[in-house]
Write a protein that binds this DNA or RNA. Sequence first.
DNA 1: ATGAAAGCGCTAACAT
DNA 2: ATGTTAGCGCTTTCAT
Lengths: 344, 344
Amino acid sequence: MRQKKIGKEHITIQDVARAAGTSPSSVSRVLTGNANVSDEKRQAILDVIAKTSYRPNLLARSLKTRSTQFIGLIINDILNPFYGAIVRGAEDRASESGYALILSNTNEQADLELADIRLLRDKSIDGIIVAPSGANSEILQQCMDDGIAVVQIDRHSEDLNCPTVILDNYAAAYAATKHLIDQGFQRIGFIGYALGQKSMVDRDRGYRAALKDAGLEANRADVVLVDFTVESIQSQISDRFSSQDRPQAVLAGNNRITIALLSALRDLSLKIPKDIAVVAFDDLPIFTLLAPPLTAVAQPAYEMGRVAVELLLAQLSGKAQPPYEPVVFPGELVVRASSQRLTV
Amino acid sequence: MRQKKIGKEHITIQDVARAAGTSPSSVSRVLTGNANVSDEKRQAILDVIAKTSYRPNLLARSLKTRSTQFIGLIINDILNPFYGAIVRGAEDRASESGYALILSNTNEQADLELADIRLLRDKSIDGIIVAPSGANSEILQQCMDDGIAVVQIDRHSEDLNCPTVILDNYAAAYAATKHLIDQGFQRIGFIGYALGQKSMVDRDRGYRAALKDAGLEANRADVVLVDFTVESIQSQISDRFSSQDRPQAVLAGNNRITIALLSALRDLSLKIPKDIAVVAFDDLPIFTLLAPPLTAVAQPAYEMGRVAVELLLAQLSGKAQPPYEPVVFPGELVVRASSQRLTV
DNA sequence: ATGAAAGCGCTAACAT
DNA sequence: ATGTTAGCGCTTTCAT
């Protein structure tokens, strides 16, 4: 390990005190905004700080105060624009309050998630925002017991009572499916993850409920539950839709699945919406540029990220107390051409 | 501020030492892998640690060792998939070595960048990876003088000698432009940022050089330099391309500009490549799904993120020494339909 | 209002 | 090989 601060020494609060002809405690009082300092003394200290461009060591402060102003954010994959928008919102809100964001990707692996949580805890972060796999509720509960603020986002693991920010997945999937039914489609499929996450389960439920309320039924063959790897998603979809015996319309459970679906349909030379209509869950700007433009359920991901930090800060300041009620955002169905029934 | 660790006290290295009938130093030796501990003693300590599930306080360790295992990553916008991929690569590589990533978005604002750098420094991070605006080289140099490792990515600010990871923007833009020339297009435009960043300037230079080498010239009217806000990009492009007097082909300077360009062309009902051919700088998976699929310069962004961390770690371990030579990645031109000249 | 002193939890000389 | 000691730089009682 190389030497740090070669030559010039660190300026510490001691140095400032000496230069200002006072004690470290008074400097600390000025730094932390404590009132009990005379005006002359305060000014002298401020002058020295300005002249030396002294900066307090936040690490040392944190060790003493037990507050690091760090928030950990644990998500699947920052490359997924949905999570990207969450991170953006969270970062913007966090930095407004002087908090820094530590980012961890889990790639949907529960063991990585566990390692991330442990590391964050060991680093004494003040809070954790997590889109939980559901497998690590125990350690998250321990974190809360230890005074670490925890907020769940996107997915709601019910064995953990903490502030939560989610979409009304059930209602949004219901509305998307109903839209397809209203277009006159009778046989409607759904493509989701097999992983059993709460958000995906709720979308599946909403989809089935809409069918049922319309006197239809989910054809077993039309519900495809894929795993997380991209290749397999696409091949599973291709397999299912290559025969003539396929649904007239399909709801894609998230943006990753949507991309895989579009690729598969292109490879099968199936036209949207003539051969098969498509609604995407989660809207992306580029969906408007596709041919045809994609009907999608828009999620306020940026705002959800902001609110997650908001809830976290409320928890830290003691303003929020258990039991916590989930904050539920509505999805918005944006109808474009991909879901329109072509009248012959 | 609420109480932390209510009820159960912290377990510290002292507690472990007491329970194992030894001293804090020996526990610390076991923790840090120091050899000078007898096997029996080591085992006794390990047993206590396992039984109590003791975890060392990394904050306290950092205060002592002057190493936090934190890396700050400062970029424009995590929502831009190019930066998203960089972050992903950086995070993956960092976590492999036990480092955590602190993320900051600057939104292309130099003052935010400055504030981010200051905060990171005050938090005693070990290193900073930055896609620099160019305006804050001075404080970055100070950081390096203070022993903080600094790595530049995507953009190369030459008044700062530190490890750098960039694309060969000149060559890539040259190749993209030459491709259009080879297709038979004579009047070729370029859309870039007016901000004067090194990477964009180099793309502009490559574009002009390719034209010149082919005996062509950049029509002043065909080079559009836009500012950063999305709306204005689109309206500036619309203004320029609405008349018949427009280039036959255009190179978009980055993915943000590409999206704006595609929107503008759609609104003008201009067909690609019939009315205007398009090459994008920076490739995105979804570009293959557009109609027509987009020709693009692919950048190895994920790998660039990984290498940036690699260079940072080399700097920290003292393996790398100044002067630092930039690591230059080649761009790859992926030819698809959007740049093909239609033979009549 | 001010300073002295203790200590946050850890590591690293320094003795032995 | 092991323990004792002295900090890292800060905040915060506790006296005065």
